[in-house]
Write a protein that binds this DNA or RNA. Structure first.
Lengths: 124, 124, 124, 124
DNA sequence: GTGGTCTAGACCACG
DNA sequence: GTGGTCTAGACCACC
């Protein structure tokens, strides 16, 4: 699902979803991705937008494209994935800690809030 | 310190810095802010960029400006601060949870990582 | 129609007109607003002036803008509209009461004058 | 009492207060106004600001100044006062009616609200 | 001196 | 095409 109202560009949202599918295993190395036109139709966005997302992911080394054969997921490097995820988690937690410091909230509050957020994300 | 290369607009960076100073108590209600021209000169940005930041903050109700008198920090109400901090914490934790889901990491890992980040922020 | 001689800033006049159109229903949620450049040309003002008006309205939560897609009216919530209208009415009536006090006119005079004004606005 | 935070310029606030005093009879024709320096001290504003207020009122024909004799209230023209007050009342009521129309509120609501505002202004 | 407004014109990101 | 950002420079009102 894409948000037309979010500040995040559409092509970034598409990239995030494909990345997430790859990293969670919903898409495995060798799997074929939907064609540009198919995905553009399904997501109700312009062909240009999907093209940009695929190009970016190809530049990242996550997917590969062959003339007339469509795009496929490339083998992922476990180390790559781990550092990618770790960096994102640490950055996010650092943000949370800074905000807590401003509000004078302690570590316990963060742990508790983390439980709440975890549960609510789980149900979505 | 402003980053000319960051994706974040200059005026947003200025707003963030002033907001942080107010919320942390470095700037207290009633304190005078640097004049538009003074800050523009110090930060090496255009007068208009600083003006925009001050205007936005005034619209938020965080600061007040009067022609010929300069700009001052307005009294903050506790409710405002609390909701501001809560929103920031929840957004950040939500990011962390999403990243953990991609990496297949569990809630325990997040709690542990939170401890690490908390300690490292503490020592800065 | 904008007044170049009024004390009210051009961008505030633009904001007022769009706000009025939204609140009266001339513009409904989902409707597209004219593009920045189009409105600037039509109103004979600078692009920046229109941009500022749109930005302010977006900060108010009344409209939303996306790069490359234009600007649209966002859904309004009833509570927001009610408080907006109430505040405007109270401010205006307070002005009238103050003026009446200066002229030594009583409450009955205001009620009578209110009838007259109501009728004359009605016929416009 | 002057509001340092209001958007209304200080000298306009001073003018309003003197006008109100004249129109309500607290200051009668022939009465001496406080000297520029005295009023500036009392109101905690600069001499320039008070001077501007007095000059504007003199230009309006409401007060007169004589070298070394201070300023005095001039005879007021009853017709002048009446039209001045009427215009202000009508403008304010028209604003209120417009706002009510937007909110779909009827004439009865305005009459009721007028009562409330009248009472609350009375107690101040 | 201060902030408020408006201008013209540029470059970038997005679809 | 769209909106977002930033610039330099001007004039005004206020104190």
């Amino acid at each position: 699902m894409l948000s037309q109202t979010s500040q995040v560009p559409l092509y970034e949202q598409i990239k995030d979803q494909i990345r997430a599918a790859v990293y969670t295993g919903d898409l495995k190395p060798g799997d074929a991705l939907p064609s540009l036109r198919e995905l553009a139709r399904d997501l109700q966005v312009s062909l240009i937008t999907v093209t940009r997302a695929y190009n970016d992911l190809a530049a990242e080394g996550l997917i590969g494209s062959r003339q007339g054969k469509g795009s496929v997921v490339l083998p992922i490097d476990a180390e790559r994935l781990r550092s990618h995820v770790s960096a994102r988690i640490d950055a996010a937690l650092s943000e949370a800690v800074k905000a807590a410091a401003i509000g004078g909230l302690g570590l316990e509050h963060l742990h508790a809030q983390l439980e709440h957020v975890w549960d609510s994300e789980d149900t979505n």
